[in-house]
Design a protein around this nucleic acid. Structure first.
Lengths: 353, 353
DNA sequence: CTGAAAGCGCTAACAG
DNA sequence: CTGTTAGCGCTTTCAG
């Protein structure tokens, strides 16, 4: 395979071929200052002739400033972080940095090890999308190691690092307002038993806002598990005994779960119960009913976070800043006004209620 | 930020602290051969005391064999390649390589540039999931540069690189058999106008198999566009004029599109038309109806491909091998037996048919 | 078994 | 404007 290939040309080979010194070649390659244009040409053609490309790692070794950025996300399978990664990759490229992407697989311990690896790699800066929050293991380790970086998503604000997050509270409050307006007075929140700060922020903001604007709204909260199978039982059990007029799922898989459980039990959505999901997905437009969802500004998040990181890497100092980006709400069929409870409609449920 | 941090310890600092030479430290760190155990201990504690971690990039510079692997995927947003990336990341780690992930954003030109970048990075090997196929720009460039590598997905077999793909043809033929069994005699294939080889392979295998086992089956093929909006019109137009008893979508977004178009026009699935999709997704279990889908063995693909790559990187030579992994079929509500056509059922369509 | 010396490919600093 | 020299942090001889 690569066995037969001649060793790749080094800067000295180019220098020799061009009849100049390695230092001159280096200067030409980096477009530096004043090199006699005759020499520039000689170098250029030698480079072409040999197909030479400088080794950025060797260059970084000498410069002691590596043009590498690190990105750590909780997972790569979800569209959310996939898009973050894709976008940051592009931006890093434009800024002439290479990017090292890693996934913590939603494990804080792994996140911490990845932070350490970025440090060992001597990256110029690390963009961390933490498993938990700015107080999680990864961010703390970054601080302890004195690393340059920024934090994105699942994050509110930090004393050291710039943070860019989604306005979970604002969006959830907006959903609360909407449900109140539509006369919903019994809402089920589907949350997630997880370290992530996002879901908790969504739950408490909703509850808070509901208390303020519709004190008579009953809000139940179900914290379920990541494992869909056991969670199904929890939700099923709740629905056996209660009949909310609306369900607000605080994360994407919860929305899937709710929809599927509605179908299994013949609960008509939106006639019997309305549904709103936090975090939009393409499939939510084609389900029946299509699902009203909170749309997160993913690309914007990536852009802002990258900009913050780059600023820090390029030496901008000053107090850390926090940004919270607003979400949009995509209204679809799954949300309708609540009809006054028809007592016998509840009778359709199993008896032990 | 990182301004106040003392420079990180180098191998010489450790050597000095341990009272040995840098060479000895290097040997200890790599667990090499025979070092007096007294010295091993001294080095170990010096390492701990200084929090020293060796710089893998500097090490690679001298060794001229970098422990870096490259991964190039067409996108990072889809669950398919997201999972591939996540899995390969883990495997690379286990094999003690670091991984450089890049996305070609479905563009061959970019793919080629990324291949070149991997070459410049002097990676030990590159795993390429090509935009097009083994004959696309990226793979060709890899050959021209004499790079070590392997190819995964959208690929059949290659004279230079090992390939690991999905048995698109087998799965599609199986779908053809199933539809034939269920008495479907008019099937619409939804394909994609794209350079990717997968969709074409699926289409032709289906058509072929249909011809063999059910010569009287009519198979129409609609090649639509990546841009959903314009595609919707193409599909709508077809459905205005034809009424297949089953639709087989050859890619995930096509399935979404079909489902949504059925709903828009009040075509009942599966009563009026059955639906099968190539490439499964979690949401397909909660739509109404739930969607029968071909499930690709994603993790297995990643595992096999990585193993092939690692073998090559570690010097295994010999003729290139090709593997084609079988898919599973997940039967759900969207597929039912075709009823003999009820003529007046067609009358429900708009008049100009 | 160990360490001094020579580099991997590149760039910074300075003398010419 | 250009070349020489001296390393970046590490590993590899190879003589002790």
């Amino acid at each position: 395979m690569s066995r037969t290939v001649p060793k790749r040309a080094s800067i000295h080979d180019v220098a020799r071929a061009a009849g100049v010194s390695a230092a001159t070649v280096s200067k030409v390659l980096r477009g530096i200052s004043t090199v006699k244009s005759a020499n520039v040409d000689k170098v250029r053609s030698a480079v072409d002739a040999l197909g030479y490309r400088m080794d950025p790692l060797a260059a970084g070794l000498r410069q002691s400033r590596r043009r590498i950025l690190g990105l750590i996300v909780p997972d790569l399978e979800s569209e959310f972080f996939g898009r973050i990664a894709a976008r940051v990759e592009l931006l890093a490229e434009q800024a002439d940095y290479s990017l090292s992407i890693a996934s913590s697989h939603e494990a804080e311990e792994r996140e911490e090890r990845l932070v350490e690896r970025m440090h060992v790699l001597k990256v110029a800066g690390t963009l961390l999308a933490p498993v938990r929050s700015e107080r999680g293991a990864g961010a703390q380790r970054m601080k302890a190691l004195g690393m340059t970086g920024a934090l994105v998503d699942r994050v509110m604000s930090d004393d050291v690092y710039d943070t860019v997050g989604v306005d979970n509270a604002g969006a959830s409050a907006q959903v609360a307002q909407l449900l109140a307006e539509k006369q919903h007075r019994h809402v089920l929140l589907i949350g997630l038993n997880e370290v992530s700060r996002n879901v908790r922020a969504r739950a408490s903001a909703f509850t808070q806002e509901a208390k303020n604007i519709a004190p008579n709204m009953r809000v139940d909260t179900l914290m379920i598990d990541e494992r869909m199978d056991s969670s199904r039982g929890v939700l099923a059990n709740y629905l056996d005994n209660h009949r909310p007029t609306a369900v607000f799922s605080l994360f994407q898989k919860g929305t899937l779960l709710a929809l599927s459980e509605f179908r299994r039990r013949g609960i008509q959505c939106p006639q019997h119960v309305s549904l709103v999901g936090f975090d939009d997905a393409e499939w939510m437009r084609v389900t029946y009913p299509s699902v009203t969802a909170v749309v997160q500004p993913i690309d914007r998040l990536a852009d802002l976070a990258f900009t913050r990181l780059l600023d820090r890497v390029e030496g901008q100092s000053g107090a850390s800043v926090s940004q919270l980006e607003p979400c949009a709400l995509s209204l679809r069929e799954s949300l309708v006004a609540s009809r006054p409870a028809a007592p016998d409609q509840v009778g359709r449920m199993s008896q032990q209620a």
